[in-house]
């Protein structure tokens, strides 16, 4: 049991921090531009595929730097030449634009790299178990993922709260017109934020690709959960996204690890049903079975009871 708890804590931390890298960019983009970017997870996938291709020529490490820059550039171009034009037609048009973009990127990835899983793997340097506890390994690469994500969190937080650029971004989130009237180039700020947000998603893809697999469905499996994170955390709030990411990371790992079922709970309460009861499927429902829907239940509860999220400053 101790073994399960310790490793679930670690696994949840890795998943949570990865979610944070994705949601930090998404929450900034949404709060600033009002765009719910459905293609955000697609930039994550692009990051993994770019890094894979780079790694086949020059190894993992250059890819770690170059791939996110390329994805960031792609993101900035999408904002400058796509989203900015669509913006005039309102939020619905933007929504549909990013929705279409997500499909487009998936098709492009399949066109160039094919449908099979790519053998993008962790660098030799990190292919060893960092420590072994109760006979179970904790790979060094997972520790590296934690390190990178924490670094990004600290870096982002410092930039936003301690620098001039951060001040302008924060101001543009709430009062874009005032910032524009003060002589700042708000469209440029938007483009920059979209580019940096995409680059962060790309970086998440680069480090997640070797651990979670590089295949055309990778954006899809992560896409919807990222929206849950930003709503639960509170739109526009980086600390909120951080807390929500970890919360959902642990929620999912512990739900899978713990084989509790409804009947166990009823046993404790001293209630029992016979096996022929009409609702017996409900009583035998176990936690691992409902694990995939738990984040969405949390989403619904948050929207009902605390619509601005855990740390958000305005209504969703």
């Amino acid at each position: 049991m101790v073994e399960l708890v310790i490793f679930s804590l670690l696994n949840g931390l890795v998943t949570g921090l990865l979610l944070f890298m994705l949601s930090s960019g998404l929450t900034l983009i949404f709060s600033m531009m009002g765009v719910l970017n459905f293609a955000h997870a697609s930039f994550y996938m692009l990051g993994a595929y770019f890094a894979y291709t780079i790694s086949t020529y020059v190894g993992f490490w250059p890819g770690l730097i170059v791939a996110p820059l390329l994805v960031g550039l792609a993101g900035a171009l999408v904002e400058r030449y796509g989203l900015r034009h669509v913006h005039r037609h309102g939020h619905v048009a933007e929504l549909i634009f990013t929705f279409g973009l997500a499909f487009l990127i998936e098709e492009i990835v399949q066109f160039f790299w094919g449908k099979a899983t790519k053998d993008y793997s962790a660098p030799e340097l990190l292919q060893f178990p960092l420590f072994t506890l109760y006979g179970q390994n904790f790979p060094a690469y997972k520790a590296f993922m934690i390190l990178i994500s924490v670094g990004i969190f600290i870096g982002l937080f410092t930039v936003l709260s301690r620098t001039r650029v951060g001040l302008i971004i924060q101001a543009a989130i709430t009062h874009p017109h005032t910032v524009s009237n003060l002589g700042h180039n708000v469209p440029l700020v938007f483009m920059g934020v979209f580019g940096v947000g995409s680059a962060l998603a790309g970086l998440a893809g680069v480090i997640a690709g070797p651990a979670l697999g590089t295949f055309p469905g990778m954006a899809f499996v992560l896409g919807s959960i990222v929206f849950v994170v930003i709503v639960v955390g509170g739109l526009g709030s980086l600390p909120g996204a951080f807390v929500a990411s970890l919360l959902i990371g642990w929620l999912q790992t512990f739900a899978i690890a713990l084989d509790w079922s409804v009947s166990d709970l009823l046993d404790i309460l001293g209630i029992s049903f016979d096996s022929e009861h009409v609702l017996r499927d409900l009583w035998t429902l176990s936690l691992p079975q409902v694990a995939p829907i738990l984040p969405y239940i949390l989403l619904v509860l948050i929207l009902i009871f605390r619509p601005r999220g855990l740390m958000g400053k305005r209504e969703t």
Partner: peptide, 10 residues
């Protein structure tokens, strides 16, 4: 499933 690690732990 995006990450099979929790299953592997089990």
């Amino acid at each position: 499933v995006k990450d099979f690690t929790p299953y592997a732990t089990k």
